[in-house]
Design a protein around this nucleic acid. Sequence first.
DNA 1: TTTAATTTTTAGGCTACCCTAAAAATGAAT
DNA 2: ATTCATTTTTAGGGTAGCCTAAAAATTAAA
Lengths: 221, 221
Amino acid sequence: MPLIAEENCLKAIYALSRNPHLSISTSTLADQLRTKPSSVTELIKRLAHKNWVIHEPYRSISLSEEGKVEALKVIRRHRLWEVFLHRHLGFQWDEVHEIAEQLEHIEHPELVRRLDEYLHYPSTDPHGDPIPSESGEINTNRQDLLSAAEKGKNLIISGFVSTEPDFLRYMDRCKLHPGVSVHILDINSFDGSLTLCREHLESFFITQQTASHIWIRTDEQ
Amino acid sequence: MPLIAEENCLKAIYALSRNPHLSISTSTLADQLRTKPSSVTELIKRLAHKNWVIHEPYRSISLSEEGKVEALKVIRRHRLWEVFLHRHLGFQWDEVHEIAEQLEHIEHPELVRRLDEYLHYPSTDPHGDPIPSESGEINTNRQDLLSAAEKGKNLIISGFVSTEPDFLRYMDRCKLHPGVSVHILDINSFDGSLTLCREHLESFFITQQTASHIWIRTDEQ
DNA sequence: TTTAATTTTTAGGCTACCCTAAAAATGAAT
DNA sequence: ATTCATTTTTAGGGTAGCCTAAAAATTAAA
């Protein structure tokens, strides 16, 4: 049974490995976990000893198959609690992440099963991130980033890259929630900033940096 | 902010000090916490240093006023989560205690406030134990033990001394839940065992030992 | 290709939490 | 009042989790 620091580490490796361009080092992990590289080295040693992580010293860090299963268990708990906090306790979507960071570490398979049932088996959390199944399946095709979309397309927001409360509050102010349709009116060829329009409302701008934090799928049904 | 072992220790001291005949020692606490007396001595030192516990070495252990406030915060969280687990997730009352042992350590005042609101401010947990208010008030008058009641009286069960799943399952089989009315048909003068009757159903026996684990109040209104 | 800058690991130290075994204090019994 | 059994504390040791500073390995640059 993994301990709290270990669970957080598995989760961080899983999250970072979503980005295939990024190679995972002790310092990137230390940043993610708000700790120091030397502490990560130590943690990684324990996780490698438990066969959850594959570590080539000075080279690479990655999850083993068992490690991925463990990481997905934690992510499942995290996202189910987020749904509960948002739907039933009325927390804002930028507040739920922090509380779920604590709830996710509670180990009790039947509790998680019943929570899932109580919530009617949600497929995504309040940020649009998919919830892994009990057996560890997860829908990983997040299609595209808004920053890579073309002018004129109708798109639906499917989730966000970051869970930073600041970023999520900004999305909330723009009324950009998962499921919302947006239309790209224009893409600035100089700095890549976008002019968007939300279902017949007035248009607004976002920077390319912001657009690169928003996952979208094409509206075609 | 108290750590988990410290919270459990504060809770255990609070629970043991409900019994004024029992003097609290490191060994009674060690039994309660399923640990060793030497570990308790160490813990108590830390808690005394934080002014939550008053410790006269070799003599006595008791909670300070601040310690009582901390203990009641933990008890409040524990009992509110128990209500949630029982009412909403459908756990049996003998199962909720163990899960709440984990949930109670989650520190987030707003979470507790909203949980309380969501549950419509319950006054007791599923075992009939009173839930402390946000400001630390708790209804401590549990009236009497069933073992001290008189023959012929009509009584209402208000709670239980023990939270052992075995005991609670036994109570469940007898249909002895908080709020249920019972009538004492007879008290055996030799061994103190009781013949009870639950609202016009057939009568049944319980031992004095069992009766001494059941809190009751007199039915008068 | 050798040096310099950067990154990663090791070494050593701290706290919380747990243990066993020995020492000290207490209380009861002679 | 002294001895003996019991209880409590201290001493010393282990793991998880964190840190800083030094050493080692890697990468980049001259």
